[in-house]
Design a protein around this nucleic acid. Sequence first.
DNA 1: TTCCATGCAAAGGGTTTGCACTCTC
DNA 2: GAGAGTGCAAACCCTTTGCATGGAA
Lengths: 142, 142
Amino acid sequence: METNGYQDIADKLRDAGIPVTFQRLEIGRVLFSGPVHLSADQVLARVREKTPEMSRATIYNTLKVFRDRNLIRELIIDPERIFYDSSMHPHYHMYDVTTGELCDLGPDDLRVVGKPVLPEGVALEEIDVIVRVRSRAVEVTA
Amino acid sequence: METNGYQDIADKLRDAGIPVTFQRLEIGRVLFSGPVHLSADQVLARVREKTPEMSRATIYNTLKVFRDRNLIRELIIDPERIFYDSSMHPHYHMYDVTTGELCDLGPDDLRVVGKPVLPEGVALEEIDVIVRVRSRAVEVTA
DNA sequence: TTCCATGCAAAGGGTTTGCACTCTC
DNA sequence: GAGAGTGCAAACCCTTTGCATGGAA
């Protein structure tokens, strides 16, 4: 999982059936150097630190390719933006609505018990759990 | 909970400390006549069936007022739009990513066990559980 | 009269798309 | 040279905002 070198990332892409390109390697480097939760814009910003000419459209295209090939997961947590999670291990999330911080929860923290009865012709895709928390420090006195 | 008449809705608004207006009654009628999951646009459409002059801005304003007063809950489930849930009972959701259908799950279907350790100065707001399913019937052969 | 609610239209922000250019095989 | 990948800019859609009108206390 800890794919740090370009060689590892290239292998990861090939294993997923994704043709390797320079841009995809750079985006992969940002995503697969460790477990991260990043919005598309954050990915773009990090890639542009090393590759300023990277296009926003390429970021969105590539994120969708990665997602379709199960290399990353889309997190629908904030109505403002989609987060991309580079960890495909089953796990849940804790989201600080005040700061926008997002972190992982393991099975030690939380577990889902029971399985809902699925209607005819319907397949389970995944179960998302989001623990929303609020920092007391930063009071939003609206 | 089954607030059907305008009188019931007016009471509900007053109880929540929300000044009663014609528009809020109409929006309340759509939301509180039964348990519903509607996007802002769907609320607008239903209100306009009876009140075609209702403004989109008023819908958004009112939904936010209702949400702040804990009359409805925002569901962050689909990146395209926010759904508003007229049921404040604690419950979870099943979402069909193919059809966009959304339904409730009770404690008989699913339960969350354990509580995550919250960082210092952080308060639990709520725990969302979304069971994502996919209809086999409508194959999305992309 | 003062304040809040409403409506319209324009702006805002994340995401998608159209199209031309480039690169690879 | 065919096809995919990329980059730019404009388009898109949901949502928010500014501002003027209107209604209630």
